[in-house]
Design a protein around this nucleic acid. Structure first.
Lengths: 352, 352
DNA sequence: GAACTGACAA
DNA sequence: TTGTCAGTTC
C-alpha cells in the first residue's frame, strides 16, 4: 500500500497548478524514496520533471513501487476542494485501481475524501541527462515571471543572452523590440532577491515565450528560479519545492540559421529552423531520485556535476529540411515497473 | 401610499442579488407588517420566500395592502446604482403603476431616484406549510457555499446525510466521488463559526447542486445558514437578514428508487425519479407574516413548531412514469389582492 | 499599493 | 467563452 501525508497541503495544490496546464495525463511514480513524475507536455515540446522526496512528508509509506496514471486536471480539480490550510493525505491500496485524496481542515471539523480512478497511461520513463551547463542564472522567480509576461506582449520568442555582466532577455515583434537586462547582484538584503550568474561560456539561446509562461505558473512555489543553459541543450527552468524536491521544466531552444553575436537584430525576422527534441528511454533504475537527492546540499545542482559517460539523451539540433516526425503522438512504449525500454524515441517539435 | 426607508441600503442590494438569478418576475407583497415575496424559480423547481419586517426599517408606512409586480433583474439593476453606504427609500403612491427607488449618499451630496413601471404578474400566493423537520443543520454559510461549489466540480447532485455525528455531503461523477463530512462543533470561539445539528431522525436526501449553488448567492447576507430536512419534504435553506427577516429557499429532493442507508453507493448511477413540487394556493390572509414574525425569538424556526392541521401544501413524491405536467408554465390563477384562489396547482419538475 | 485569483456578467 | 470586477494576498 501507498500512503503519504502532507501537513502543508497548499504545496501540493501549487505543484498541480504548476503542471496541469502543461501536461494532460501522466504517471506518478511512487517509490520508497519519493513521489515523482516525468512527462512531456501535450504538444511534446517541453518536459516536466517533478520530484517530492519522502523526507518532505510528515508520513510516507510505500511498500512497493507503484505507478499511478492520472489526469492532472482532475487531480487539480480535487485539490481545489482542499482548503489552503488543510492536511492532505493520499492513499492507494494494493490491488485497487483508485487513489483517495483526504483533506482534513485544521480544526478537524471538516474531513473530505475524494476518490479517483487510476488510468493506464502508456509512457516511457524519459532519460534526462545530467549535463554540464555553460551558464546558470539564479534570480527571483517573480522577476523572471514578470519578464516573460512583459516580453509576451512584444513577441512570441525570447532570446536569452548570458554574459559576465548579466543576462539579457530580448523580444521583437510587430510593435517594436524589447531588451531587458538583469545584472548580477549578490549583495542584497535578502538572499531571495539575489540574481546570480555562474558562467563558463557566454550563451545565447532562443525560446518560445508560450512555454516559458507556462513554466512560470510554478512561481508561487519558490522565491527563486534557476535557469540552466548550454548551447544546443534544452534549457532547464527549476523551482525548488521547499524541503521536498523540485519541479524542472525542459525546453529545447529554437535554432538560429547562423550564430550571431547581435541576436536581437534578427530575432523575429528570420524563420527559425525546426527543433527536434530527441528523447531516449532508458532502463528505469531510478537514478534520478538518487542524483537529485544531493542537489539541495549544493546550491548549484547541475553545473558542477562531472561530465557523465552516459549517452546524450536529451539534445536538440537542426532538422533536415524534409525530415518528418518519427513519432507524432504519444510514444507507444510500455513501461511497466521494472521493464527496461531502450527504444529511441524522437519527438518532433510541432510549432514552437 | 407605501414608503419604506432603509439606512443600510446594502442589505437590500444583497437581497436582490440573492434572488434575481432564481426568479425572473415576482410580486412583492406590502402590508403593515412588512415587505415580502414568494415565488417559484423560473423552472418551477425551487421556491424563494423573502420576508423583511416593518420593524427592520428606519421608516415604514403602508396604508393599505399592496402587491407590486416587478422584474427582479431590473430592480437589481437599479439597486446596483446605489452605493453600498447609501440610504434607500422605496415609494409607491396609490393609483400609480410605478415605484420609485431613492438613493441618498451618506454625505447627502448625491441623491438619485429611479422610477420603475410595475407589472401585472399572474401568480398565486403559495401556501408553505410549517413542517416539523427531522434534522436541522446550522453552519457557517461560507462553508456551506464552499461545499456546494466544491462538489459541483465532481457531480450534479449532492446527497446530504445527517446523523448524530455530523452531516455528510456526497457527490459522484465522471472523475470520481467525494464525501465531505462536517462534525457538530458548538465549542468555537465565535458563535458564527459553530456547526450545530439538531436531529430527531437520521435523514438522507438528494438535491440538484445547481439549485443549491443558486441559494448560496445569499451567503453575503448572513454568517450562518440553516438547512432543515425531513424525508420527502423539500429542504429549507434559510439565511437571516439581520434584524429584519429572512430569505428561505425550498427545494424538493430527488427521489431515490429505493431508500438506501449507503447513499453514496448509487448516488449518480441510477436515474432519479422525477420530482413533482405540488403547490396549493390558499386564501391569502397573510398568515406567513404572522407566523414568521416569531422565528427570530426562537432560533429554531421550523423544528419545534407544532404540527399544524393544515393540508400538506408543499410536498413531493414520485411521479407515475408517464404522468405529464398539469401545468408546464406559469399557473394562470389571478391573484388580485384579497381574492381567494383555491385551485390546486401542480407544477412539474422539469429537469432538476 | 499592486498583482493575482476567482467570481460574475455580457 | 470571454472580459470585467472585486476580493484577497503579498
Amino acid at each position: 500500500m501507498f500512503e503519504l501525508r502532507l501537513v502543508q497541503g497548499s504545496l501540493l495544490k501549487k505543484v498541480l497548478e504548476s503542471i496541469k496546464d502543461l501536461v494532460n495525463d501522466a504517471n506518478f511514480d511512487c517509490s520508497s524514496t519519493g513521489f515523482s513524475l516525468q512527462a512531456m507536455d501535450s504538444s511534446h515540446v517541453a518536459l516536466v520533471a517533478l520530484l517530492l522526496r519522502s523526507e518532505g512528508f510528515e508520513h510516507y509509506r510505500c511498500d512497493c513501487n507503484l505507478t499511478m496514471g492520472m489526469n492532472l486536471a482532475n487531480i487539480a480539480k480535487m485539490l481545489k476542494c482542499a482548503g489552503n490550510d488543510d492536511i492532505i493525505t493520499i492513499k492507494a491500496d494494493d490491488g485497487t485501481d483508485t487513489v483517495t485524496f483526504m483533506f482534513e481542515s485544521p480544526s478537524q471539523d471538516k474531513i473530505s475524501d475524494f476518490e479517483m480512478k487510476l488510468m493506464d497511461i502508456d509512457s516511457e520513463h524519459l532519460g534526462i541527462p545530467e549535463a554540464e551547463y555553460e551558464a546558470i542564472i539564479r534570480m527571483p522567480s517573480a522577476e523572471f515571471a514578470r519578464i516573460c509576461r512583459d516580453l509576451s506582449s512584444i513577441g512570441d520568442t525570447v532570446v536569452i543572452s548570458v554574459t559576465k555582466e548579466g543576462v539579457r532577455f530580448s523580444a521583437r515583434g510587430d510593435i517594436g523590440a524589447a531588451n531587458i537586462v538583469c545584472r548580477q547582484n549578490a549583495t542584497v538584503d535578502k538572499p531571495e532577491d539575489a540574481t546570480i550568474i555562474e558562467m563558463q561560456e557566454p550563451v545565447t539561446l532562443t525560446f518560445a515565450l508560450r512555454y516559458m509562461n507556462s513554466f512560470t505558473k510554478a512561481t508561487p512555489l519558490a522565491e527563486q528560479v534557476t535557469i540552466s543553459m548550454s548551447s544546443d541543450l534544452p534549457v532547464v527552468v527549476e523551482y525548488k519545492v521547499a524541503g521536498m524536491g523540485y519541479i524542472r521544466y525542459y525546453l529545447a531552444p529554437k535554432i538560429e540559421e547562423e550564430e550571431e553575436e547581435e541576436v536581437a537584430a534578427h530575432a523575429q525576422t528570420k524563420p527559425k529552423a525546426e527543433t527536434k527534441l530527441k528523447v531516449e528511454t532508458k532502463p528505469k533504475v531510478e537514478p534520478e531520485l538518487m542524483e537529485v537527492a544531493e542537489d539541495e546540499k549544493e546550491s548549484k545542482p547541475l553545473a558542477e556535476s562531472k561530465p557523465k559517460e552516459e549517452p546524450q539523451l536529451l539534445e536538440c539540433h537542426k532538422l533536415d529540411e524534409e525530415s518528418k516526425p518519427l513519432v507524432d503522438g504519444k510514444p507507444k512504449v510500455e513501461n511497466k515497473l521494472g521493464a527496461s525500454t531502450n527504444g529511441e524515441i524522437e519527438i518532433m517539435d510541432i510549432e514552437q
